[in-house]
């Protein structure tokens, strides 16, 4: 009897814990590092983290969020980043107008997504394996295109104001990349929560047979999500290349693990356990500030991944301890 009475209060606190787990974790990381590193909580540093690390990671992680919402994992987001960047830089270097180069970059992302879509929707390969295959193929393609992995730099004469605008432009003092994050987050957030297509994506992701029996075009939905994911990731590749005026092979792979981490932490730490945009964004911010903070307090670079790993585990332990109590 006493157990049954004690349960409600405990489960409410556990649910609250889960609800505020991610913001609380972020607050904790911010508090700890601002105490340890004097330069951490300054406008310059925070802006730097948001622009240099969070923005591009967030865009890729949003692509991943779509894939996770539809029940898969897109391991080829990094590939789409790279191929997008490659196509973009190649076009710019060849003297094409920047707008056309952006189009080519996006086309590379669409192509990557289409290839995944073909494997997943037409041939019925599980998304994890299909995109793993794409990851390997993409790696080879980059090797072939760059003589084994040499960066492609935009010739000095081709660095136009338009290119600089994409790489370094800002509006109202906020860099273009952050505007894009805002735009995509709002768009994808509304798509997943408010629209019919969003419902359909979540339905396919969580219970594919029920989606099929309810008359959804399951394959078409999976294909659209693959293409959207590839295109969004390629966008990040274009921004990245424009920022450094170069295409660096395999640079996109750095985004793969962070985007998986952010999307899944956001999923695990939501009350409902489904992929969601705010969770993903908080996850990306958590990673960004953690890495930055470790750097500022002078941790050995090689130990930084340990910091991130421990953070992920701590967060997940928190999540599942909370989830279990909530029942």
């Amino acid at each position: 009897m006493s157990r049954a009475q004690a349960r409600p209060s405990r489960s409410i606190s556990a649910a609250e814990l889960l609800r505020f787990g991610l913001p609380a974790m972020l607050a904790l990381v911010l508090a700890v590092f601002s105490a340890l590193a004097p330069g951490f909580l300054t406008v310059a540093n925070v802006t730097g983290v948001l622009v240099n690390s969070v923005a591009l990671n967030a865009i890729v992680a949003l692509a991943m969020t779509l894939a996770v919402a539809s029940g898969g994992t897109d391991l080829s987001v990094g590939t789409a980043v790279d191929l997008g960047g490659l196509a973009f830089i190649a076009a710019v270097s060849a003297g094409q107008p920047v707008a056309l180069a952006v189009f080519f970059g996006l086309l590379a992302g669409i192509g990557t997504g289409l290839f995944n879509a073909l494997l997943i929707a037409r041939l019925g390969v599980t998304p994890f394996l299909a995109t793993l295959g794409t990851l390997f193929i993409g790696h080879s393609l980059q090797q072939l295109a760059t003589d084994g992995g040499n960066p492609v730099y935009v010739p000095a004469g081709r660095i136009t104001p338009a290119l600089a605008l994409i790489g370094h432009g800002s509006c109202l003092g906020i860099p273009l990349s952050l505007w894009l994050v805002l735009l995509l987050s709002t768009g994808i957030g509304l798509l997943l929560t408010r629209t019919r297509f969003g419902r359909e994506v979540l339905a396919v992701g969580i219970q594919a047979p029920a989606a099929l029996y309810s008359g959804l075009p399951v394959r078409r939905i999976l294909a659209l999500i693959s293409i959207a994911s590839g295109t969004i990731a390629a966008l990040a590749g274009i921004l990245l290349s424009a920022h450094v005026n170069a295409y660096v092979p395999y640079a996109g792979n750095a985004y793969l693990l962070d985007s998986i981490g952010a999307a899944f932490i956001g999923t695990a730490l939501s009350r409902t356990g489904r992929a969601n945009v705010p969770g993903t964004l908080l996850g990306v911010a958590l990673f960004g500030f953690m890495t930055n903070g470790l750097l500022l307090i002078g941790w050995n670079f090689y130990w930084q991944q340990v910091g991130t790993g421990v953070l992920i585990l701590l967060t997940l332990i928190l999540a599942f301890a909370g989830r279990e109590r909530v029942g």
Binding site: L202, I206, Q207, T272
Partner: peptide, 12 residues
């Protein structure tokens, strides 16, 4: 539960 209902994790 397989063909009609969705688990409570989805909002609908």
């Amino acid at each position: 539960w397989r063909t009609t209902f969705f688990p409570a994790t989805v909002p609908f």
